[in-house]
Amino acid sequence: MNMIFNYIREIFRAISSLWAGMRITGKYFVSPGQIVTQKYPENRATLKMQERFKGEIIMPHDENNQHRCTGCGICEMNCPNGSIEILTNRVPNADGKTERIIDKHIYHLSMCTFCGLCVKTCPSDALAFGQEFEHAVFDRKKLTKVLNQPGSSLKKEAKQ
């Protein structure tokens, strides 16, 4: 008798446990409250990433096409993956001495692990993280970028 009673009790407990779970899913089915998913490709125009989002390394240029990179090579030295290559030129400056300026700041996005060391260690704050995250391309070579824009020059007050 006791066995049958226990058996029936187990069945009821099982059903009530299933019901407890179904009630939650049912509740969210009829009243989702807040929508947590995003319609991603459709909302591209309004999609805003967080301001510190690490999408890629960029070199901000101002309206005169000037950046702050002196070509010192500290970021290249600090990058653990060799994602940065600095090519410099030597040009004579106004005092007649030769001066080192940046020729190409080459950034291999495909090798970058977004550790942030280059941005942190740059003494002139020339680098920053960009918000772009759609990096899919058909050719791997397109992931190698030159960060200083053509014809850009060093912002004078940034020079130490």
């Binding site: 967080q50 692990t113 977004f114 550790c115 942030g116």
Partner: peptide, 19 residues
């Protein structure tokens, strides 16, 4: 993401403190 810019692989600590 708001604080470190990344969701999974933070790299937010540095010897001596935080990045």
């Amino acid at each position: 993401e708001e604080s470190f810019g990344s969701r999974l692989l933070h790299s937010f600590n540095a010897p001596g403190g935080l990045m």
